[in-house]
């Protein structure tokens, strides 16, 4: 069991899973397991009883209509919901067997292992170099050569060739797609274990989206990726597994809440979903 009070090994294991592997319905080597995860914003019960597991070196997509709680679930995995004063989480989220909502867990240590890329590209108004170096600097990573680390992170995010001559320029001068790849470079510079992506392409044009999707396929070799997306084709294209969420009415009160409907291999979800609601949603009959 990894100890969250210690830094994890900076070298990610390259346990490569190909899509051709006969994969079980549930990941054999889960990084995260949620058990009866419930999230409340004040009185609003945003997500009810989510049981999910996310496989190592897999891409898992969370899909579903607006308000179904998929982003909320994603933001539980690195304790980002802590930043919202009224948010309350019940149930457990175990990360390599350790409950990240446990009493002695420091959310900062959690976030150092679990990186995040947001919906809107949000580079710091600093130089490209300083953006990438930010994480290693604040986490006090032992870095022998920061220049090398910046280069490898930017290369890893397929951005190096475009920015290598202007590392000292302000990141705000990049295009939207470049900014988002910079944010990915910034996230992987701290050598995390998992990268969470919250609709990373929704603010980008189709060409930039394609680049990010290609990048995700690359990153999958070294990282576990969990992505929230509104774009079903994107989920079908990039992910190994898909979790479909929906908005339900609570039987007792009739209040709306988000819930997990179906979780399976992506091919299964898109070709032969088990649940009628999944089928309606992916075939566009949702209403």
């Amino acid at each position: 069991m990894p100890d969250l009070t210690e830094r994890h090994s900076p070298v990610p294991e390259t346990h490569h899973t190909t899509r051709d592997d006969a994969m079980a319905a549930l990941p054999r080597d889960p990084v995260f397991v949620t058990d009866k995860l419930n999230v409340y914003y004040g009185d609003f019960h945003a997500v009810t009883d989510v049981d999910l597991s996310f496989g190592k070196n897999e891409i898992t997509a969370l899909i579903g209509p607006s308000g179904c709680g998929k982003s909320t679930v994603l933001r539980c995995l690195n304790r980002m919901n802590d930043l919202i004063p009224t948010a309350r989480v019940a149930g457990t989220v175990s990360y390599h067997g350790l409950d990240i909502y446990g009493e002695r867990v420091d959310p900062i240590e959690v976030r150092r292992r679990i990186g995040m890329v947001f919906q809107k590209p949000n580079p710091f108004p600093k130089s490209i170099y300083d953006n990438v170096a930010y994480g290693p600097r604040v986490t006090g990573m032992k870095v022998e050569n920061m220049d090398d680390l910046v280069e490898s992170a930017l290369t890893g995010a397929a951005l190096w060739d475009e920015v290598k001559d202007k590392l000292k320029q302000n990141a705000n001068g990049l295009s939207g797609g470049q900014q988002q790849r910079l944010c990915i470079a910034r996230a992987i510079a701290t050598m995390p274990d998992v990268v969470l992506m919250d609709e990373p392409c929704s603010a980008l044009d189709p060409i930039a989206t394609l680049k990010i999707e290609e990048l995700m396929a690359e990153l999958r070799n070294n990282y576990t990726i969990i992505i929230v997306t509104h774009n079903m084709q994107q989920a079908a294209r990039v992910s190994d597994r898909t979790a479909f969420f929906s908005v339900q009415q609570k039987s007792e009160t009739g209040d709306r809440t988000g819930a997990l409907v179906e979780y399976d291999l992506t091919t299964k979800i898109f070709e032969s979903p088990a649940d009628r609601r999944t089928e309606d949603y992916i075939s566009g009959r949702f209403g």
Partner: peptide, 27 residues
């Protein structure tokens, strides 16, 4: 300061003081 910048900083494992001194105050 936009929420996105603050979230980016926290997402990278910054402490509150680091968010304040490296992102909020310069911005």
């Amino acid at each position: 300061i936009p929420r996105g910048l603050r979230e980016a900083a926290y997402g990278l494992g910054s402490t509150r003081m680091q968010v304040a001194t490296r992102v909020v105050v310069p911005g």
